[in-house]
């Protein structure tokens, strides 16, 4: 288990290998389908983004509402592939980490390698457990999108596994050939 800090540094990204279990602490940003569409448009038009993309980690999540006195509700990952077509432009603009679940497209995998980034998976369906690792949650953009708005999160020991590292390895591909029965 490796403890890493977000935003990610070059050294951290370089040290991560597909299959590594990590505990992420620091600042990450939420963005899923609707927010991606807006962010991508902003990148395309050269507009300033609501947060610094350089080194940033985006978490594909639409959390459930916070109960009184809590920062957030349940907050597990959503399916990453829906963000695939909009991801290469964000990687080109400086995005360094993504947290979601499921395989990425060939284009995203090669963009991850080209731009020296990393893709993590968190456990899909473990929303209550993952929500507890989020200590602060601030709405920073696209209020009208509700759960799909962009939130700035402070996470502590947020568990994830490296799927695609910056060296071109893919954990789903690696486990694809394994046998689980003798």
């Amino acid at each position: 288990m490796k403890r890493i800090q977000a935003p990610l540094t070059k050294e951290t990204i370089n040290s991560l290998k597909a299959g590594d279990l990590v505990l992420i602490s620091g600042t990450i940003y939420t963005a899923r389908d609707a927010a991606h569409k807006k962010l991508d448009e902003m990148v395309f038009k050269g507009m300033p983004l609501p947060f610094e993309l350089k080194g940033a980690v985006i978490y594909y999540v639409g959390p459930s509402p916070a109960k009184p006195g809590k920062p957030i509700g349940s907050a597990g990952p959503t399916t990453s592939s829906r963000m695939d077509s909009l991801t290469p432009a964000l990687l080109k603009a400086g995005l360094k980490g993504m947290i979601g679940k499921g395989r990425r497209s060939k284009e995203v995998r090669s963009a991850i390698r080209r731009h020296k980034a990393v893709y993590f998976a968190a456990t899909g369906g473990a929303g209550a457990l993952l929500g507890k690792r989020i200590k602060e949650c601030d709405l920073i953009a696209f209020f009208e999108l509700g759960t799909e708005a962009v939130y700035k999160l402070r996470v502590e020991d947020f568990p994830a596994v490296v799927i695609n590292d910056c060296h071109g390895n893919d954990l789903y591909e690696q486990v694809g050939g394994i046998k689980c029965y003798d």
Binding site: V61, G62, S64, K67, S74, G76, G125, A126, G127, A128
Partner: peptide
């Protein structure tokens, strides 16, 4: 463990309700 936390705190098992 997730299901235990959800039940104890009456929060959704999964955020996608």
């Amino acid at each position: 463990l997730n299901s235990k936390i959800a039940k104890k705190e009456m929060m959704p098992i999964c955020q996608d309700t």
